[in-house]
Design a protein around this nucleic acid. Structure first.
Lengths: 339, 339
DNA sequence: TTGAAAGCGCTAACAT
DNA sequence: ATGTTAGCGCTTTCAA
């Protein structure tokens, strides 16, 4: 196997120096058209392909950015990554993917690993386990853009892209109230994550605004999953204080809730059910699931734009924006109360 | 901002040379324990973080591999990427993601871009548009591992990981026949992709084996999508030769088929419907969708293992394996014929 | 407009 | 066991 063509080979072929070749290749203005054309020609002839590594080592810019998410298997994160990659591609940036799998150790290792790879910045969403944040400080110390999205934390003073989760919780609750439901329960996660807290606050706020009591045994803290939804629904419906509607922490949990309610002969909208995320399946289950759309693609696009903005500034943290997207209520059968 | 610590800083601090530091850091055996310990200590004290770029430039190995998929927004590819990343993480490999969005131009650009980034290898699944393959040859020429999965093509003589798609088509058809359906239609893509061809062949083979005619107007070539499923079902059910079962090219298409059939009052399993991929939603729609599971996580794991095997050989293409996974029939309500 | 040369941070062959 | 040194391929300052 013959060695790869470098700018030295091109220089030799043309009897010029590497600096000339480098300039011709990088569109440097003070170069004669003839030289540039000749270089481009020879480059093509020799099948030259630039070694971005060498360029990166010298310039300190790799044009690679790291993305840390819990798991790309969740539709929500997949969509965000899709949009981030798409939004950054044209600017020459590529993405290294790192999945934390909801583990803080993985997340810490991810940051370390990405920094060693000399990424130009990191876009991340916290794992459920994350309650310390020192590992992110090194990114900031290196003056590289760090953007947090969706699962953020205020102890990190960096730009963020989030949904208005208070509003999301509020809207979901208000919608149920408008539909005539009066005893509204909430099945959520036990983890202290801001977005889930905010939704709960929105829920409580909507209740009190409409002068409805918030029974503490109507808030169930556990997992977010189909089985957690089933368990939660069972517990709620077997208590002495049964709700007439259930808000689930995400669509999967809502799915579990619906399954259990159907089993119990309380098929929604008899008991109202609403979720969060607008997963693909939500429109196609029976009854179809009302939910709050979190606009993952918009979120990804916003992350990409924010990154590009930050990278252009000498100090990426000059003014740390906080983009907050508005949730959208999607009304379907599971909350279409008719009584 | 102070400059980053390099091995030179460590060497200076200890009055040794960089080679000593390099050796201590990389676990070279012929080093005194005392020196190694001292180096490690100072490295920690100075908050040293290795620059993998420099190491990569020198050694020619980046420990980064490129993954090209149509879109990470499809659950199938997301799962594969999840497993590839997971399977390679412990060996120190990271993943650069590149989405072709089903465009051949993007795919070509992806290969180019990844090679410039000096990836150690590429794992890819072809776009629907791909009908030329020269862009992949450069990878092979550079003696770097190229692995194709799922959407492969025989004109590329590289290792592959695929599902037995003939078997998948055969099983789906046989299952419908066993359930008593006799006039089985197929809604598939118009693109000339091997996996879809194979499924069609499996379908035809199963029909002829069971002495059922294969009406040519029962095979609809178009898109794969919810709306394509609706259109396909409509066309089939409005023809003079209506089928009593429909195989859809993927679960999304099957979803469209089901929607249309329900509208027409022919709710499955009255008309049998089966899809491919076992998407998350398939178990939760009504009626729940029978489908063929393609085992994306197994496929991703197999890709990761195959990559590790290839990278260890001096000639990665010494023996090009073709791993073929068996599909699994998942029976649900949409094919539970009871007549 | 072009050339010469230093170096980005690390590795490894060769020498001691 | 440790040191010396020549690069990996490119960018960029300074000089011509």
């Amino acid at each position: 196997m013959k060695k790869k063509t470098t700018i030295y080979d091109i220089a030799q072929e043309l009897n010029v120096t590497v600096s000339t070749v480098s300039r011709a290749l990088s569109g440097f203005p003070a170069i004669s058209d003839a030289t540039r054309k000749a270089v481009l020609e020879v480059a093509k002839k020799l099948n030259y392909s630039p070694n971005k590594l060498a360029s990166a080592l010298k310039s300190g810019k790799t044009y690679i950015i790291g993305v840390i998410v819990p798991s790309v298997q969740a539709q929500f994160f997949a969509s965000i990554i899709h949009s981030i990659e798409d939004g950054l591609k044209d600017s020459g940036y590529r993405i290294i993917l790192y999945q934390s799998n909801e583990s803080i150790d993985n997340e810490i290792n991810g940051v370390k690993t990405l920094l060693e790879a000399q990424v130009d910045g990191i876009i991340a969403s916290l794992s459920l386990e994350t309650s310390v944040f020192e590992h992110f400080n090194e990114i900031i110390k290196q003056n590289k853009p760090l953007i947090l999205f969706d699962r953020v934390h205020e102890s990190l003073n960096v730009p963020t892209v989030t949904l208005d989760d208070f509003e999301a919780g509020y809207q979901a609750t208000k919608h149920l109230i408008k539909q005539g439901y009066k005893k509204i329960a909430f099945v959520t996660t036990e983890h202290q994550i801001k977005i889930f807290d905010d939704r709960l606050k929105g829920y409580r706020s909507a209740l009190s605004k409409h002068r409805l009591a918030c029974a503490e045994d109507h808030v169930i803290f556990g997992d977010l999953s189909i089985s957690a939804g089933q368990k939660g629904a069972e517990r709620l419906m077997n208590s002495e204080n049964t709700p007439d509607a259930i808000i689930a922490g995400d669509d999967f949990t809502a799915l579990g809730v619906i399954k259990k309610l159907k089993e119990m002969g309380k098929t929604p909208p008899q008991i109202g059910v609403i979720g969060f995320a607008n997963e693909t399946f939500s429109d196609y289950i029976t009854p179809s699931l009302s939910t709050i759309d979190q606009h993952p693609n918009k979120m990804g696009t916003a992350c990409a734009e924010m990154f590009l903005k930050m990278i252009r500034q000498e100090n990426p943290y000059k003014n740390t924006d906080h983009i907050v997207l508005s949730p959208t209520l999607v009304v379907r059968e599971s909350t279409s109360n008719t009584k």
